[in-house]
């Protein structure tokens, strides 16, 4: 029995080893070797470079703000969806997932039309007399955040709905019968019980934003993030060593974020 299971695991395992584990090890390993000797030079170079640090900082900032905005926007929507009947729920979830089904290139171009200097948003604001001069939104970190929130909101909604629909509706009633207002029942019961979904959703959004390429490339303009910087090093400058170092840094940040989030989850939800 046990041997059979192992045999079944083998194809997938081989595939992952050959095409994921080995390339990663080679890429990461290569960053510590220069002219046949161990070195940290690549890393020292980047962390001593203010240009790179600024890109790193912008990337983290964009990812963090995107995650927070997804939480703030997604939480009430997810709660609403989780309290609907089965048919309505499936319909609403399908609608929520819809952005994920469109190509990120098409989606980003739509945002360019909306956010540009002569785009829909600026025109509308000027027509309403709210602003005199068109605002610079496109090709700024703000544009990236908008595009990324649009892209990743479905992820946090899906994960939150999954957790929230398992919260017994009687808990809200119990809290209310004990004197809680709707809002404080929500804050003291629904929010803490949604933490597991919130953590998973946040990891997905944060890591997704950190590694996203198309959206920041199209909406960010000259403003670089790590992923576009990596692309530039590898493809435009053909500097594969620097690209590997950047890739390793990205990976390290990703793992660090997951570790921190898990730590937070354990403090907030000790029994989980």
């Amino acid at each position: 029995m046990k041997k059979k299971v192992l045999v079944l695991l083998l194809p997938g395992l081989l595939f992952l080893t050959a095409f994921m584990l080995v390339p990663i090890v080679i890429t990461v390993g290569s960053t510590f070797v220069h002219d046949g000797a161990f070195t940290l030079e690549g890393y020292m170079h980047f962390f001593g470079d203010t240009f790179f640090l600024k890109i790193l900082f912008t990337t983290l900032e964009v990812s963090l703000v995107t995650t927070l905005m997804c939480i703030v926007l997604g939480f009430p929507v997810a709660y609403y969806i989780s309290r609907r009947g089965r048919r309505q729920k499936s319909l609403l979830l399908a609608l929520a997932i819809f952005p994920l089904l469109t190509s990120s290139v098409v989606r980003s171009f739509s945002w360019m039309i909306i956010l540009g200097k002569k785009g829909l948003l600026n025109n509308a604001l000027i027509a309403l007399g709210l602003i005199k001069e068109p605002m610079d939104i496109l090709y700024t970190p703000a544009a990236m955040m908008i595009g990324l929130v649009h892209l990743f909101l479905p992820l946090i909604i899906i994960t939150l709905v999954g957790v929230m629909e398992n919260i017994d509706p009687d808990l809200i009633k119990a809290a209310e019968s004990l004197g809680a207002s709707r809002f404080s029942a929500f804050r003291k019961v629904i929010v803490p019980l949604s933490v597991p979904g919130l953590i998973i959703g946040s990891i997905l959004v944060f890591v997704g934003s950190l590694t996203a390429y198309t959206t920041p490339a199209l909406l960010g303009g000259k403003q670089k993030v790590i992923s576009t910087f990596l692309y530039q090093n590898a493809i435009t400058l053909n500097d594969w060593y620097s690209a590997s170092v950047i890739a390793t840094i990205m990976m390290a940040i990703t793992f660090a974020v997951i570790a921190i989030m898990n730590k937070i989850a354990n403090t907030l939800n000790p029994k989980g």
């Binding site: 017994d168 809290a175 019968s177």
Partner: peptide
């Protein structure tokens, strides 16, 4: 409204707050 009535309600499925200890459940109100 419910939250201004000061009635104790005991639910069929107990409806205890799973994220709170017995003490905190009872202290909730």
């Amino acid at each position: 409204p419910v939250n201004k009535r000061n009635f104790g309600f005991v639910f069929q499925n107990y409806a205890l707050f799973p994220h709170l200890s017995v003490y905190d459940n009872v202290a909730f109100g």
